[in-house]
């Protein structure tokens, strides 16, 4: 019965702290997305303001590893049993990708535009057996370009 108690405690801890962490992270993501909205990121290969001369361009990237909590991991394995959308991993992936893009943007705050943004997901562990963590790693990379004449205040393009 001891192991069952430990299991229930882990479940409760995972649920409470996972929920708190997720709420905090989402609030931070939304605030930072708002702040970095002026810096456009596209998957296109050519700059939007084609007429402006480009000063320099560089490869920028941002990455993050986020883990799922114990409760959601159990929920995911239960869902895996019945089939269907694994909702508990959706927020994990969504948060990881937005965080990676945000970190990429934060690494080049004075850039005018980010081109050819690519997002790669890799998993460090699958979390299908109890002793490993279920986590996701997201890497976002792209090319940041800086226009020669225009200062970052007028990035209206």
């Amino acid at each position: 019965m001891d192991s069952l108690t430990i299991f229930l405690i882990l479940l409760a801890l995972g649920f409470v702290f996972g929920k708190l962490a997720e709420g905090r992270h989402y609030r931070s993501i939304l605030a930072r997305e708002e702040m970095l909205l002026r810096l456009p990121a596209t998957s296109c290969k050519k700059p939007m303001g084609k007429t402006l001369p480009v000063g320099h361009a560089e490869l920028v990237h941002g990455h993050v590893v986020i883990s799922v909590d114990y409760f959601k991991q159990l929920l995911a394995s239960l869902r895996n049993f019945f089939g269907g959308t694994i909702q508990s991993y959706e927020t994990l992936l969504d948060r990881a990708r937005r965080e990676a893009v945000l970190r990429l943007k934060e690494s080049c705050p004075t850039a005018n535009e980010i081109l050819n943004l690519r997002i790669e997901t890799s998993s460090i562990s699958k979390g299908n057996s109890g002793d490993r963590v279920g986590s996701v790693e997201v890497l976002a990379y792209g090319t940041a370009i800086y226009y020669r004449e225009v200062s970052s205040q007028h990035s209206g393009l």
Binding site: T42, S43, N80, I86, L93, I119, T121, S122, S123, G127
Partner: peptide, 23 residues
């Protein structure tokens, strides 16, 4: 939406995870 790309990963074993993004 232009320049759309698909990517997959495996976070959960036995599950299909599709990510698609574009401009």
């Amino acid at each position: 939406i232009v320049n759309v790309r698909f990517s997959t990963s495996s976070v959960a074993a036995g599950a299909a995870e599709i990510y698609v993004y574009g401009t």
